[in-house]
């Protein structure tokens, strides 16, 4: 009986004989844990109904099970998620209202507003142009730009309380607050470089997250990244932060199978977030090894040695100073 307990196998695997248990019971196994993967899927804003069964079925079609595998090491990580279980939650009105207030209160807190405004003006045009093309009429929808880190922090702090979920749960938020705001919310991250003092901004994302066990997607905005394959002659439609690859609710307008397509889009996001963010992200833990020799090499491959000229004095202590400064940069 004891042996049977120790070697308790996964379902559908034949039980080993007692002899096998005696000899193989303690052998390392590739899969140590089999468990369902539970994900909270939260919709903030809008009034549409979400069919939990249909969405779960769509996600399971894409991700019937998931056992993370280390390709370069040639083994599994020891866990097999046997099925995906979604907990669909519609955010209560109080949370929707507070979220919208938070967005409006924190609009456009750029480190360098003048430079940022120049850059996002171009994106505002792109987003409105995309929607105009779908609606077949010119539009000028207000676009609220907000720091993606702030949004993640707000959802991490407030989501569990409003929704009665645990902060350690895997949670995906789908934002559809255009219905309430009549404005589009788009995300950016920006910074002042700690060593050059130049302003840096990355803007135009429709989704963000991964610092905590949550990710959020705004289904009402248009990602304005570049398709990395569009540079090829005849290329395009590669995975990238583009409207082609990551559709929004705007793409559902004037199509015959809009409801079916809504579930396709949402299930596709859930699949990608699970696969690329939650597990590539959370199995990845930064750890320092004491016996570590780290070479940081800048290889000047310019034609006139301009990197050496500019960075000749780049030393470990200078690097440490810049890192220190970057931690002290106000957020």
């Amino acid at each position: 009986m004891l042996f049977a307990t120790i070697t308790a196998p996964a379902q559908s695997v034949p039980l080993p004989s007692q002899e096998e248990s005696l000899t193989k019971g303690w052998e390392p196994r590739e899969i140590l844990i089999e468990t369902p993967l539970k994900i909270n899927v939260v919709f903030i804003g809008g009034t549409y109904e979400v069919n939990e069964d249909l969405l779960t079925r769509k996600v399971r079609e894409r991700l019937p099970w998931y056992a993370p595998y280390m390709v370069e090491e040639g083994h599994y990580l020891g866990i097999n998620f046997t099925s995906v279980e979604l907990n669909i939650i519609r955010a209560p009105t109080a949370m929707v209202n507070d979220f919208i207030k938070f967005i409006e209160d924190n609009e456009g807190q750029f480190f360098n507003p003048a430079k940022a405004e120049q850059i996002i003006a171009k994106y505002n045009e792109q987003i409105n142009y995309y929607i105009s093309t779908i609606l077949n009429e010119p539009v000028n929808i207000p676009i609220i730009w907000i720091d993606a880190f702030l949004v993640e922090e707000w959802l991490y702090k407030n989501g569990p309380e409003y929704l009665n979920i645990s902060p350690s749960d895997y949670t995906i938020y789908f934002l559809t607050t255009f219905d309430e705001q009549r404005a589009i919310t788009a995300f950016y991250v920006d910074a002042i470089s700690p060593e050059t003092d130049e302003y840096i901004i990355s803007a135009g994302m429709n989704s963000f997250g991964g610092l905590n066990r949550l990710y959020f997607v705004n289904l009402d905005t248009i990602p304005v990244g570049q398709d990395p394959c569009a540079l090829f002659e005849g290329g395009g439609m590669c995975k990238g932060a583009t409207a082609d690859y990551y559709p929004s609710r705007w793409d559902l307008i004037n199509i015959p199978n809009a409801e079916e397509e809504f579930y396709n889009i949402v299930s596709s996001y859930i699949y990608e977030i699970t696969f690329f963010i939650f597990f590539r992200g959370y199995l990845y833990r930064l750890s320092f090894e004491i016996n570590l020799y780290s070479y940081l090499i800048i290889i000047d491959a310019t034609s006139d040695n301009s990197a050496i000229e500019q960075l000749g004095g780049f030393t470990s202590s200078r690097l440490a100073t810049h890192l220190q400064r970057s931690y002290h940069t106000p957020t």
Partner: peptide, 10 residues
Amino acid sequence: MIVDTRVVDI
């Protein structure tokens, strides 16, 4: 941990 920083010409 030792960090060795260099700028080199290819």
